[in-house]
């Protein structure tokens, strides 16, 4: 009789592996857009509009924008994964009911989900980074580490999205989350222009937004020496993920366990 229950790592890996396999089935349709979207942005805004702009925070505009896009890509992929994706698995596919019949707990299930979203954040950042390198926008260097920031950005927005999902009863309500919170961050988190260009009164709001800190870290790695690395940003990312993730898992547990 096999009574040795799998270890925590083995359980988390099993959940993560499930997502990899399911996602990997449609790798072209799932994996190509992360290359194309930033391309459109870089050409459309960076090269088009950027021609009229000189520098932002001492950095050429195209480079400034490109480094911001590294993180928005990670943000969008993980926010989608843990809102629409999670909701569909929860309410429509009933995938969690099947998974929770196997030897894993709700904590394994949802932390595995967050780690998977982080993985997507890593690879989506890597995809954009390779476009940036291919166009010669940035020199290969310390910026090679930005996919790791992409991972933590992914887990951060996964945690937040799980918390949001725990409140959502109707899938259309995610539109409020995306139009009201995720998309505006494009403009208030220093992606396309610096936070300092915004009215002073908005600054505290910008500082409170999770994306602001992810983008600042990315720029610190992309322009070493020019933009300082702030440990406060690192702490924000980790603390936000931990606290919001804890709240999200606790609330979702009530929906998963009858």
């Amino acid at each position: 009789m096999n009574s040795n229950k799998p270890s925590v790592t083995s359980r988390l890996y099993a959940v993560w592996y499930r997502h990899v396999r399911v996602y990997g089935r449609n790798i072209i349709s799932n994996g190509l857009p992360p290359f194309l979207e930033p391309l459109v942005f870089l050409v459309g805004i960076g090269m088009g509009l950027g021609a009229y702009l000189t520098k932002m925070e001492g950095v050429p505009y195209l480079e400034y924008l490109a480094t911001g896009l590294l993180m928005t890509t990670a943000m969008f992929t993980s926010a989608f994964e843990c809102s629409f994706g999670t909701f569909i698995r929860l309410e429509y596919e009933k995938a969690y009911d099947g998974m929770l019949a196997a030897p894993i707990t709700v904590w394994d299930l949802l932390i595995g989900e967050i780690l998977w979203a982080g993985t997507k954040g890593f690879f989506f950042t890597l995809a954009v980074l390779s476009v940036i390198y291919a166009f010669g926008i940035l020199p290969v260097g310390l910026s090679l580490l930005t996919p790791f920031i992409g991972f933590f950005t992914g887990t951060m927005f996964a945690a937040l999205s799980l918390l949001v999902t725990s409140f959502v009863k109707n899938i259309n309500h995610f539109n409020f989350y995306f139009s009201g919170f995720i998309s505006p961050m494009f403009f208030f988190a220093g992606v396309v222009f610096p936070v300092s260009n915004l009215p002073k009164i908005v600054h505290p709001i910008s500082e409170a937004l999770p994306l602001t800190h992810a983008v600042r870290l990315t720029r610190a790695l992309s322009f070493p020496g020019e933009i300082p690395l702030l440990w406060a940003d690192v702490a924000y990312l980790l603390l936000f993920t931990l606290l919001i993730g804890l709240a999200g898992v606790r609330r979702l547990k009530r929906r998963l366990i009858d």
Partner: peptide
Amino acid sequence: QVYSRFYG
């Protein structure tokens, strides 16, 4: 295959 992982 995916589920066999859950059982280790």
